[in-house]
Design a protein around this nucleic acid. Structure first.
Lengths: 204, 204
DNA sequence: AGCCAAACGGAACCCCGGTCCCGTCACGGG
DNA sequence: CCCGTGACGGGACCGGGGTTCCGTTTGGCT
């Protein structure tokens, strides 16, 4: 970081852009540092020195995403807020660039601890942004006081990711709608009571 | 398939076993046909001729899993049935061999249409086995008549997969319990009304 | 028991991603 | 405006995965 401006920054941008393009064209298995260097018009040695592994490049990509977080909805109604969230998640997963990047990151995170941490930070940030939708609903008296806000937010995303990853189907607007309303209904029924603290371990 | 017994079968078993072992040791990125041949004590040429790609080997692995499907629960109570299902899903994902295999398959399916089809068949079969838990509840009058049974079953799995894949956390028993009760509560509230038929497209 | 098609296995070959070495270039301070 | 440090880039080398060819083995079938 001693020379953040100028050529170094250009190289970084070129490589990250090339990585995004290659991800769409070839998918994660087609990514290799030599190919990235070619695409980026950059010396092969440079890529190996600065990143060293494909996972590190992806980790760098997701770092950028953490900083650009869209604002949450604030409609004053839980259903509408969660519908907005579900719509955002659906748009992200459906978008060719963002969707491919996220699925690639999920796959990479399975085998690389660094990527897993970066991805987790990203999702934690995203979740934190939307949590107020739930805590506001609690404050309004629409939900039980001991509702686990983060869990509700994650419950909106889960079915959409599940559909994409296990069924190979792009989630549609109807799917997003159902995901939001299911989470809201369960929350009102008190099914998200109390945070879970025991019984979870991090993956090897 | 003209010679299903004898040497051919032994080779197939050896390679599939080697693939399972390698998946645990090295993860999906570490799999390559040459390495599988070495591990299996089999000619490299044979592996390339019979399968040709890593994805094809995984597809073959999942085909075996489709046939061995555990029986569904039938307790006469929706909550208990879904709790049993959630427990099964949790056990599967937590089990080193099964869990790694499933995550690897999901990753492979992202970039390979054949693997995606095989994986989809697997999940469709699993879902079909557990659907009666929901339809029985409908028949008992515990759920609305237009409840989408398959969606409810999938809703139980979704949060557990989501937690494993996006947060790198093994789902615990408390997570499984919550997943089941959330799905049940939402179903009772009528949030799973009517099958979704529009707005979904298969991935490229 | 013997035949033959089909599958297996060894070995050489090619290709290319990963590594190393060293010369060159540009940013930023003095 | 110049100088030094640190990053970039080219090129050669190495290892191993993927492909091909051909000889060998096997197991079903008559």
């Amino acid at each position: 970081m001693s020379r953040p401006g100028g050529r170094t920054a250009r190289v970084r941008a070129a490589v990250l852009a090339a990585a995004g393009d290659a991800l769409i064209e070839l998918g994660l298995p087609g990514l290799d540092l030599a190919g990235l260097a070619r695409r980026a018009g950059v010396g092969k040695t440079t890529v190996y020195r600065r990143w060293g592994t494909v996972a590190a490049v992806l980790e760098d990509l997701v770092s950028d995403m953490v900083e650009t977080s869209a604002p949450r909805a604030d409609t004053g109604d839980l259903d509408d807020d969660l519908l907005a969230n579900a719509g955002l998640v659906r748009s992200t997963l459906t978008d060719p660039r963002q969707g491919r990047l996220l699925t690639a990151l999920i796959c990479a995170a399975v085998d690389d601890a660094g990527t897993a941490r970066a991805l987790r930070r990203f999702y934690d940030a995203r979740t934190a942004v939307w949590e107020p939708c739930v805590t506001d609903a609690v404050a309004r008296g629409d939900l039980p006081a001991d509702t686990d806000a983060a869990a509700v937010v994650r419950a909106v995303s889960a079915p959409l990711y599940h559909q994409l990853l296990t069924r190979g189907e792009q989630p549609g607007v109807a799917d997003a709608r159902r995901a939001a309303l299911v989470a809201a209904a369960a929350a009102r029924a008190g099914a998200f009571a109390a945070p879970v603290s025991a019984g979870a371990r991090r993956t090897s």
